[in-house]
Amino acid sequence: MADELDLLRRANPVPPGDGRFHDRPLDQHAERRLNQLLHSGRPRRLRRWVLSVGTAAAAGVVALTLLLSGPAATPAVAAPRPLMIESGSAPVPLDRIAERAAADGSLRLRQGTHVQTWSLAMTAGTGARRAVTLPEERVMRWHADGSATELVVATDPRHPGGPVITDADPVPRIVEDGHVLSRRTYPPSWSDAPPRATPPHDIGRLRAYLDELNRTEPLGTPELLDAVSELLGNWTLGSRENATLVRLLAEAKGLRPAGAVTDRLRRPGQAYVYDDTAHGLRRMLILDPATGAVLGLEDTVTRGAAEVGVRAGDVMSYSAWMR
């Protein structure tokens, strides 16, 4: 019980100083943070912490396989290889991507998200067998009355890397090869705090917005990337928002252009890499070179941990966002 309480305190899904939760039901953001505790092993920051502390604190932690439910369940696909920068490709500075995003004007801001994710699962226990989770695809759509619909589907291991949700309005539906992991409807909410608040177009205000999303640590580059992921878990950005976000990313220390890359949904992108030495991770942010939209974020382990069955070069997690 002590371990579970520690996880809950660290995740802090319902901060005591946040007036949104006084005498009210949990909103969608807080409920999802609680669900991450129940179903995702450890939240993202805690998974990185497990790898960084290494031997003593992480002893006995192993990666487990998540299977499709049912008697004919199929094991998860093998761990993906890290994305590779195209040899000889020219890195594009973030400032130039921001200029292209500002000039594009073709994308409109939309509340909701469509994302495919994959991550290693960590849990306490014993055993030496290495395993991974299934890729998941999630569609979140908000409606005019303030309610929201969320559909989470396991992608088919026989067809990895391809979408399995048809994004049909007003409610997303699954296609034949998708297995529903969860389907939720959230009641109307009119919160004016992030992530429900509309993302601003000013760099300073956007930084404050993302800092409020992070809430646990000063907004350094690792925390900024986490906050961007949280933002994109709630909004699909338009051209103005993309331009502002990329300008903010251009100010992030240690985030460097690396060259062209093809992402996991076979889209051309430009990669920007941050070496998170404190947590033993290489973080790769992938942007659409024409619109500045964030296509993906991948974390790769740079410092192995034998006690959790993780080797240097293993992919820890990735997210691939779609419109």
Rank of each mutant, 00 (worst) to 15 (best):
G259V: 06
A258N: 11
P71C: 00
S40C: 07
T126Y: 11
R141H: 07
L232V: 03
D288E: 12
E241K: 00
A271Q: 07
G146R: 07
Y274I: 07
T300N: 02
D23R: 14
D3W: 14
A250F: 05
I165S: 07
P199R: 01
T126C: 06
A101S: 10
P257I: 12
D211K: 04
A103F: 01
S317W: 00
P71R: 08
L265D: 08
G233F: 04
A76N: 01
R42K: 10
P187Q: 05
N12D: 15
G41A: 06
V115E: 10
V261H: 01
R130P: 13
P289D: 01
A144W: 05
L255F: 06
E4K: 13
R267N: 06
V310I: 15
W190A: 13
D18H: 10
R183A: 13
D104P: 02
D276P: 05
F21V: 02
A290Q: 15
T244N: 03
W190T: 12
H159Y: 11
G280K: 11
A63C: 12
H114Q: 08
T55G: 11
R173M: 09
P80A: 01
D299G: 12
R158Q: 13
V228D: 09
T277S: 13
W118G: 02
R48F: 08
G292C: 08
A121L: 15
S52V: 01
L83Y: 01
V180T: 15
L7R: 15
R311C: 04
S229G: 15
R129K: 12
P170N: 08
A144N: 08
I174C: 02
P135Y: 02
S189Q: 05
L245W: 05
P93T: 02
D23A: 15
G54M: 02
S147C: 04
L7E: 11
L181V: 11
S239E: 09
R100Y: 04
S319M: 03
A11V: 15
W321P: 00
A252Y: 09
